[in-house]
Design a protein around this nucleic acid. Structure first.
Lengths: 165, 165
DNA sequence: CAATATTTTCAATAATAATTGAAAGTTGTG
DNA sequence: CACAACTTTCAATTATTATTGAAAATATTG
């Protein structure tokens, strides 16, 4: 397998896994392309190399910036914007965690809190108990994300993986 | 908010979060419905209560069984199959973890191992290093899932959440 | 500030994924 | 074993999501 083939393969694979996680294929592929590229790339490069449209490239680059997974770079004497990916995968994990906490865990916590305001009755007891079980789990996932975001990789995994030894 | 409204709200909310995670809305809703229902329910009940077709209900019930999140139950004197959800949310978390490990982490590990077989060259060094960084993270997530699946909730979260105190 | 390069937007279109429902298959019953 | 009850399948349809590309907006240069 040549380097070029391997990179293509990786982009393909990353794209497929992305879709399984509710991330659109193009966004995952743009991310993958930048992860395995030494030089930063401009929109034009990305359009060409992934055979996607300008609009698509632009939109997903912007979204990757929102997730803090890529940076803009400027090249002296060139007007275009160039993009580079964060390569430290522990950083990547932390940033994804931070964003998912904000977009998913926190809204879910809000919804669950609301649901507990159901009017009390004999039948509502079991319902509230179920919601509270879900809430407990979600709160713990939240605690886990907070810990992960603060910890360094070594401490985080080191301690966890020793849990049951 | 009446109990009925709260249950409907929960089903709605669970469905929406599901779609964000690459789980189809109906499957998440069927799961939600069974989570908040005291009695086990047959296909007909589910079709009616969620206003979905027989095929849809059947397919998603089967998929929830594959994930080990619901059980079949039989009612004496009734031919129909009834379904009940696992209500222990720590169990639910463990089972989802187990399944995601099998469906996502393990195949990804395989792919990454393959990619390292790229032919060596000056340029491939950086590529392999990036793949190895990704691999390290994925392996640790794998270790984390293994630990979670074996641990009980109290031990698992107790120790983690004390990490940085 | 006009000319040009570049980025952004967004309505239209295409691709993908979910859903339906009727037909085929299966299982249990008298 | 014929019938009825129930479950499963799957081609067709519908709904959702992603993508395109041209036009509008913005930024940069001389």
């Amino acid at each position: 397998m040549t380097l070029e083939q391997a990179k293509q393969q990786f982009i393909q694979t990353w794209g497929n896994f992305g879709t399984q996680w509710g991330i659109n294929r193009s966004m995952a592929q743009v991310h993958a392309l930048l992860l395995v590229s030494d030089q930063s790339k401009c929109t034009e490069d990305i359009m060409t190399e992934l055979s996607i449209s300008r609009g698509n490239a632009n939109m997903n680059l912007r979204e990757l910036m929102n997730w803090n997974l890529i940076y803009k770079e400027t090249v002296p004497g060139d007007r275009k914007e160039y993009f580079r990916a964060e390569k430290d995968m522990w950083e990547v994990a932390k940033r994804i965690t931070k964003e998912r906490k904000r977009r998913e865990i926190e809204p879910l916590q809000q919804h669950l809190t609301e649901l507990k305001k159901v009017e009390q009755s004999y039948d509502s007891i079991a319902f509230v108990a179920t919601i509270e079980n879900i809430e407990r789990l979600v709160n713990r996932l939240d605690g886990l994300s907070n810990t992960l975001m603060k910890a360094d990789e070594h401490i985080f995994f080191g301690k966890i993986l020793n849990l049951l030894k």
